[in-house]
C-alpha cells in the first residue's frame, strides 16, 4: 500500500505555527515520524497558515529534503502555485491534484510528465463530485485517456474517486468502492487508485474506526494508495492486515511488526 502521510498540513495547529515561525524541526519531525510509521510519501499542504502558499510549500519541501528522499506530494488547488513549485522540488514528487476536465487535466498531466512527477487526478469536473458510480468511472477513464495521450506512465497516475463524509453523503462511500473496482480493470497496467481517506469520517464520531473499516473495504476493492494518518497505529495495522488477507504479503506470526519495519 502506498501510504501518503497527511500530517504536514497547515490545517493542523502544530504545522500552522511551524510555518509561521519558520520552525523546520516540526516539519522534519513529522516527516520522519510518518515515514517510520510506514508512510511511503509525504503530503505537503500549507493550508490556512499563510497567504504565500508558494513560499511555504517550497520552504517545507526543502526542510523535508534535508531529512529524507521520500516522495513529496505538493498539495494545492492553485494552478499558478503548483506550476511554480513543482519544478523546484528536488527528488521524487507528486502533484495533488487535478480535476478531470480535459483542459485542466491536460495542463496538469503535461506538468507532471515534464517534471517526471506523479499526479493525483480527481474524478471531479465542472459539475462537481459525481452523484453516481458511472460518472466517476467516466471521469477516471478520461484521466487515463489524457495521460496515455501525453505519455504519463500509468504508474505515475493516481486516480482519486473523491470520498465525501458519510454523514453528509451516505451513498458516496459505496460509490467510491465500486468505482475503484471498475477503474482498476480499465487499463493494463492499471493506474493507482487513491483516496483522501480521512474525509470519509469528517465531523463524525468514531473517526478512527470509520477510517480503518473503510480502508480495509477499499483495499478489498483494489485501492492501493491512500492519503491518511500513518501515526494512527490501529489504522496502519488494519491496512497491513487487509493487504495480508488480499495475498499481497506473506504471513508470519510477527507480520505486523514485519510490515511496520520494512514497508518504507
Amino acid at each position: 500500500m502506498y501510504v501518503i502521510g497527511e500530517r504536514i498540513n497547515g490545517m493542523f495547529a502544530d504545522v500552522k505555527e511551524a510555518i509561521q515561525a519558520k520552525d523546520a524541526s516540526v516539519i522534519q519531525d513529522l516527516a520522519k515520524r510518518q515515514l517510520a510509521a510506514g508512510a511511503r510519501a509525504l503530503d505537503v499542504n500549507s493550508g490556512p497558515a499563510t497567504s504565500d502558499a508558494q513560499g511555504a510549500l517550497l520552504w517545507m519541501a526543502e526542510a523535508i529534503r534535508e531529512v529524507t528522499d521520500a516522495p513529496i506530494v505538493i498539495d494545492t488547488a492553485k494552478w499558478d502555485v503548483m506550476q511554480a513549485v513543482i519544478p523546484n522540488v528536488a527528488g521524487e514528487k507528486l502533484i495533488n491534484s487535478t480535476k478531470a476536465d480535459p483542459e485542466a487535466a491536460m495542463e496538469y498531466i503535461a506538468l507532471a510528465a515534464a517534471n517526471n512527477a506523479g499526479l493525483i487526478g480527481l474524478t471531479i469536473d465542472a459539475d462537481g463530485v459525481p452523484g453516481n458510480i458511472d460518472k466517476r468511472v467516466e471521469l477516471g477513464a478520461q484521466l487515463i485517456a489524457v495521460a496515455s495521450d501525453i505519455g504519463l506512465p500509468m504508474d505515475h497516475l493516481f486516480i482519486d474517486p473523491v470520498i465525501l463524509p458519510v454523514n453528509v453523503s451516505p451513498n458516496n462511500p459505496d460509490h467510491c468502492l465500486q468505482a475503484i473496482g471498475q477503474l482498476r480493470s480499465f487499463a493494463d497496467p492499471p493506474p493507482h487508485l487513491v483516496l483522501g481517506l480521512s474525509n470519509v469520517s469528517q465531523r463524525c464520531a468514531n473517526r478512527s474506526l470509520i477510517n480503518r473499516t473503510y480502508v480495509t473495504m477499499a483495499i478489498a476493492h483494489g485501492l492501493d494508495a491512500a492519503i491518511m494518518d500513518p501515526l494512527d497505529t490501529e489504522l496502519m495495522d488494519a491496512v497491513f492486515t487487509a493487504e495480508l488477507l488480499m495475498g499481497r504479503m506473506v504471513y508470519c506470526d510477527s507480520y505486523l511488526q514485519a510490515a511496520r519495519q520494512t514497508k518504507n
Binding site: V250, Y251, C252, D253, S254, Y255, Q257, A258, Q261
Partner: peptide, 14 residues
Amino acid sequence: DINIAKQVNILCTD
C-alpha cells in the same frame, strides 16, 4: 514453512 522462514528472519533482526 514460509511463514516460519519469515518469522525466523524477523526474530533475528529483532
